[in-house]
């Protein structure tokens, strides 16, 4: 069983599926000869040829829009948007077409496509390269938004996304592309979509996060354990649609919830989770729900980005306050 980083797992999932399913095609800027600026598509063109793995002109709306056309013809496009900061040019194609082709044709045409993009801060990248705007996409009916948080989950969730008969925006936390390695079987086994993963069982408080922030969240859970606070940690994984059952069951058990997100605070996924708990689990709460998040500011350029991103200390402080409530 090979040891893989998250980016290697992304590559392995695409390679596996291209090998077993001829309808899978990979497209995007620099995905061919160069293998992607992060090497997510490394070697795929050599393996599967220039027609199935191809560089597009530098045009994001085209990349997404032509994927809608490829999918309408029964292919399964896996399109890369080089950075999430460039995805907005493709938003019209996502919200007006990819998300609703099935609905608009009453199931006659569908859109089994994956739009991959590296997202999130923390790697000292230039402007427009560090946002976490998953909530914008999570608001769109008809698509799925999936974010892995480890190599094994990246592998299993990307396979599931490619096999899913509906469009998936697959956001890859680039801060942890190479942060950790783990054994990934590369056996074609997909993980389920639309469910959370409970990474750590606990009884005192539920910590919910996704993507790279699970690193800090798990570290915080360790620090809290040393203080005698037993935290349950949930990886949201599928941002849209949210697995309400797992969240509500956990909060029913612990009575407390802190949500950790590196996105801007207002109107985000953390707010949606808070609303779900308030609507359907209020009576199980022993303390207010708290969000530890980025701020309602532009993502700062890299000299100050650490001040924007939630830290382990901030999570621990927030949990302590909730426990003392």
């Amino acid at each position: 069983m090979p040891e893989m980083t998250l980016i290697e797992a992304v590559n392995a999932a695409m390679s596996y599926e291209m090998g077993v399913d001829e309808s899978v095609v990979v497209l995007g800027e620099d995905v061919g000869t160069n293998g992607g600026v992060f090497r997510a598509t490394d070697n795929l063109q050599q393996q599967y040829g220039e027609m199935r793995v191809f560089d597009t002109p530098l045009a994001e709306s085209l990349i997404c829009g032509m994927s809608v056309g490829l999918a309408a013809q029964g292919l399964k496009p896996v399109a890369e948007i080089q950075f999430m900061g460039f995805i907005y040019a493709a938003f019209d194609q996502i919200i007006c077409h990819a998300s609703r082709m099935r609905n608009r044709t009453r199931g006659r045409l569908t859109c089994p496509m994956v739009l991959r993009a590296p997202y999130g801060g923390g790697i000292h990248a230039p402007e427009h390269h560090s946002e976490s705007t998953e909530a914008i996409f999570a608001h769109v009916p008809g698509i799925r938004v999936v974010i892995p948080s480890s190599p094994a989950r990246a592998y299993g969730l990307l396979l599931a996304a490619i096999r899913d008969p509906d469009p998936v925006v697959f956001l890859e936390p680039k801060r942890i592309y190479r942060a950790q390695s783990e054994m990934v079987a590369d056996d074609g086994q997909a993980l389920p979509l639309d469910v959370c993963f409970t990474l750590r069982q606990g009884s005192d408080i539920t910590l919910i996060s996704w993507g790279a922030m699970l690193l800090e969240t798990m570290q915080a859970a360790d620090a809290l354990a040393e203080r005698g606070i037993d935290a349950e940690v949930i990886d949201l994984a599928t941002i849209k649609p949210i697995d309400k059952a797992t969240i509500l069951q956990s909060v029913e058990k612990t009575g407390r919830c802190v949500i950790v997100s590196e996105a801007a605070k207002s109107g985000g996924v953390a707010a949606e989770i808070s609303a779900i708990i308030a609507e359907e689990g209020l009576t199980t709460l022993l303390a207010p729900i708290v969000r530890v998040s980025g701020h309602d500011t532009v993502m700062p350029m890299f000299k100050l980005e650490q001040k924007y991103m939630p830290s382990v200390a901030q999570i621990v402080t927030a949990v302590s306050k909730v426990m003392e409530f």
């Binding site: 199935r52 709306s61 997404c64 829009g65 032509m66 056309g69 490829l70 309408a72 292919l75 194609q93």
Partner: peptide, 15 residues
């Protein structure tokens, strides 16, 4: 926006 869809469809024919 349909023009982009035609590219995917034309590409599928060529593929």
């Amino acid at each position: 926006s349909q023009c982009c869809h035609s590219i995917g469809i034309g590409y599928a024919f060529k593929l």
